[in-house]
């Protein structure tokens, strides 16, 4: 037993930088995953474009910061990103509401393709350098590890935002409407809930959190490329499935687990498989417990 504890502590002390990085990345995945899980909960749609909106948020800040101070650029970035999320839903998903599910998914893939190509066009295929944001880009030393302040800020900010979101969903009218719509689309419509407004609100909240997530995520990276959003997007989706799709706390916990595991795998020298691990995890979950950690059980009805 003692030996076990000893190996455990030595494991933690050698892997501390990776665990810290994992917690930080996990928080960022969590902020993206909420967007997926909320949209899926209501529309039963995997919003393939979510990761690309996240990337677009990064690019918008880069271009905004080039022409104005950061305290203006950041709010502007958030507003523009939310607007993009809102427009994507209105233009690409709303007309297909009564179409088969496959069509909406194809539309989502089309939007993702469009945003990536637009980004490629605007940037000219060059990696754009993300501006250093004061305070959260500063270095700090914890124990044996040196990281950026963002590593510590991320989990705190994530948890605060999630608590705020859960309160919003539990105690406000729009939150109640969201719960009703996710439970039964048609009946809630009959009960006088304005579905389009609820769906728009969902997209706005989702993209808002993704914008905050991008702020934290790209601070750890040197630059933004048009395809950088795809991987975090997919991983966040896996996190949402892991936690039980439709459940917000589930998505957050799933995201933290995936972030930490992924970074420990990197620490063990298996970097090639850090992406593959996420998908292997997804397949295992889908086979063992398709409803995820906190998801509700769904049965098919004719």
């Amino acid at each position: 037993m003692e030996q076990f504890i000893e190996t455990l502590t030595s494991f933690f002390s050698t892997n501390l930088p990776y665990i810290l990085a994992g917690i930080s990345v996990g928080g960022q995945y969590a902020l993206i995953a909420i967007g997926y899980t909320m949209v899926y909960g209501i529309l039963r749609l995997i919003n393939f474009a979510h990761g690309d909106i996240f990337m677009a948020a990064g690019l918008i800040l880069i271009y905004a910061a080039a022409s104005m101070p950061l305290y203006l650029a950041i709010p502007l970035m958030i507003v523009v990103t939310v607007l993009i999320g809102f427009l994507v839903e209105r233009v690409a998903y709303k007309p297909l509401r009564s179409a088969p599910r496959m069509s909406i998914m194809i539309s989502a893939i089309g939007v993702s393709y469009l945003i990536q190509n637009l980004a490629l066009y605007v940037t000219g295929g060059l990696t754009k350098v993300y501006p250093a944001i004061p305070w959260i880009s500063d270095s700090v030393t914890i124990g044996s590890a040196t990281t950026k302040m963002v590593t510590l800020v991320t989990p705190v900010l994530t948890i605060v935002l999630v608590i705020a979101l859960v309160l919003l969903i539990r105690y406000t009218k729009i939150g109640m409407a969201m719960r009703a719509v996710s439970r039964d689309f048609e009946t809630s419509q009959l009960m006088g809930i304005k579905i389009d407004r609820v769906i728009s609100a969902t997209f706005i909240i989702g993209t808002f959190l993704a914008a905050i997530g991008s702020l934290l995520f790209f601070t750890n990276y040197t630059g933004v490329t048009p395809t950088i959003g795809a991987m975090p997007g997919l991983k966040a989706f896996v996190a949402a499935v892991f936690g039980g799709i439709g459940s917000i706390p589930g998505a957050v916990i799933g995201a933290f687990i995936i972030g930490i595991c992924e970074n420990i795998i990197k620490g063990l020298g298996w970097t090639t498989f850090s992406d593959a691990f996420t998908f292997a995890l997804l397949i295992v979950i889908l086979i063992v417990k398709p409803s995820g950690l906190f998801g509700e059980k769904n049965t098919d009805k004719v």
Binding site: R101, F237, V241, T278, L282
Partner: peptide, 9 residues
């Protein structure tokens, strides 16, 4: 949709 993500993975 799970099939889509799993095959993608």
């Amino acid at each position: 949709d799970y099939l889509a993500i799993a095959t993608l993975g």
